[in-house]
Design a protein around this nucleic acid. Structure first.
Lengths: 336, 336
DNA sequence: GTGAAAGCGCTAACAT
DNA sequence: ATGTTAGCGCTTTCAC
């Protein structure tokens, strides 16, 4: 029940040796005699000595911590990415500092600055939906802190990226719906400046054209949350009689429209087929089970931190940005 | 594109003044002349100076950071708690360091130690399911770092707690099911050493007895995840003909059993009524919509950090543990 | 094999 | 109004 935690100096004083000897003993330096080492170790354990990470970080100019900034922790995809990141981090004794931007530009900036202030060794970021000004990212480059973007990245910047093949995912879904007989497919899209959404949409549009179906821009609705789907209820129900398929940019809006259509008396998949994107656990819980694109979140997280660690270890002057794109697969279930 | 970030000394040197003057100017110390202040500010902005949080922390013996350890970020309840915590933290310029234990004792220990090493100003913790040894918590007390438990706490320790009235929640659900006509209610419970689960179960059992229904211990199944529900499929289907209600300890297992029963031909809520606990967003998405107990996650998060800040500001020697219990409400939907 | 001293970046007495 | 100094806890030359 004492005030400040014990320091190396406390140990040194108690044992009548110098702080540097204690430091070396604790760090298993070869010069230290077995006897001294064990005395130090023993006493350190007895008083529950713990190194001050702030002091170590200040000395070493590195904090043994990597920072992660994600839009929203609540999304299963991001959670699995974090698990992947932590998996690797723990195995290497690295600390992980997680912050969420809540899809808010200002918070993203604040979080990134806080992480830089803490002298994180590297940064793993998935940018917020409403980030347009990229100067805070540029600051990171200028401060020479390695940074890897995952999933959502600023296309204007030449950076390392761990991404999903969203275009291919969009194609897979659309091809599947067409194979199942759909001829008029509604696409629930996400806000324009989100590249992942744009890619999924491009996959959709490309496939429609390839299949020689008529591409109708009116069949694209900006509607990427449950709330927005319900807000667009009238519009959707007005279109419903003319469509036989829906490709939603994520699982939650897919499920929302599925419910909305079923409540209006439509049969799924008989009358209208629905597919989503992401393979959220909820996709296999709802009825009918949702057909959706599976993303490799855990693997992406692992790959992201591995790439980051490589960058940290090789701070090469000639920077050549790399992109690692994960392939996707379609999980066919009962909704299509 | 320089190596180390600029320090106060760099500014001092460039401006031909002393480091302490720079420090004071940056900190808006009243003694500093307006001229000096503005010159420092301007130059600092120009070179994008950022204080080294490690150095500040080392000096001040506090890091302006609070640590949060939760079992799993993926659960909506914990995510909302985090949002509540961040809400307050951001408004006060505090940093939040989040770690997940993944319901693993060892990770919990590692995380807490890492936070202590970082000299966090305080700790907000919800303990993992398989934590029985409490010595790492005791270490926190001994190091005089304020700690508040939320939701899941060690009952053997006298600590500050922000909790849900789980007992009352269990009662509410059970009373509701009985009012709806249920006479034989199955309870899907969680592992024994999780107090929140035990309390919900106690609320269930108490209510059964109060209603003068026969309490049958065989109607309590240890089954708190989707997977475990499906693993117990045979057992559940064998009981199904004899029950007319289910109270699940959380929403995911409630939904799992709902699906399992519906797949087996049971009508919900007509033949069997089902209710969950937690009000996960999925509860209002699934069909039938799930009746469930609403927990005040966001409010709990806010309260937790507010209580923590109070503890940090008043490190009183006479510690009297406080418990703040949040009331719950029942959201009645279509499953009951 | 161990100690003394310097310094990481910052702040806060204590000068002046 | 500003400079000097010391020190937070740790590591690491450089001595011996």
């Amino acid at each position: 029940m004492k005030g400040a935690p014990a320091s190396i100096n406390d140990i040194a004083r108690a044992l009548g040796i110098s702080a540097s000897t204690v430091s070396r003993a604790l760090g298993n330096h070869p010069d230290i005699s077995a006897d001294t080492r064990s005395r130090v170790m023993e006493y350190a354990k007895a008083i529950k000595y713990r190194p001050n990470a702030l002091a170590v970080g200040l000395k070493h100019q590195r904090s043994n911590t990597i920072g992660v900034v994600i839009p929203e922790i609540i999304h299963h995809f991001f959670s699995t990415i974090i698990s992947g990141i932590e998996e690797v981090a723990y195995s290497k004794g690295l600390r992980v500092m997680i912050c969420q931007s809540n899809e808010d530009y200002n918070r993203e900036v604040i979080n990134i600055r806080a992480m830089l202030d803490h002298r994180v060794d590297g940064l793993l970021i998935s940018q917020s939906k409403d980030t347009n000004d990229l100067s805070h990212f540029v600051e990171v480059f200028e401060s020479n802190v390695p940074i890897i973007f995952f999933d959502r990245f600023p296309s204007e910047l030449e950076t390392d990226r761990i991404i999903t093949d969203d275009f291919q995912g969009g194609k897979l879904v659309t091809q599947h719906l067409i194979e199942r007989g759909c001829r008029s497919i509604l696409h629930l899209a996400t806000s324009e400046n989100l590249l992942v959404g744009a890619e999924r949409c491009r996959g959709y549009a490309d496939t429609i054209r390839e299949a020689a179906l008529t591409f109708d821009p009116n069949l694209i609705l900006l509607c990427d949350t449950q709330q927005k789907v319900y807000a667009a209820k009238e519009q959707i129900l007005a279109m419903a009689p003319h469509i036989d398929g829906v490709f939603a940019v994520n699982d939650l809006s897919a499920i929302a429209i599925m419910n909305l259509l079923m409540d209006a008396g439509y049969q799924i998949p008989d009358t209208i087929k629905v597919a989503g994107f992401g393979d959220d656990p909820i996709a296999s819980i709802v009825r009918p089970r949702l057909t959706t694109v599976e993303q490799k979140g855990f693997m992406m997280g692992k790959k992201a931190i591995e790439m980051l660690l490589e960058r940290i270890e090789n701070p090469t002057s000639s920077f050549v940005p790399r992109t690692y794109k994960f392939q996707v697969s379609l999980n066919m279930r009962d909704s299509s």
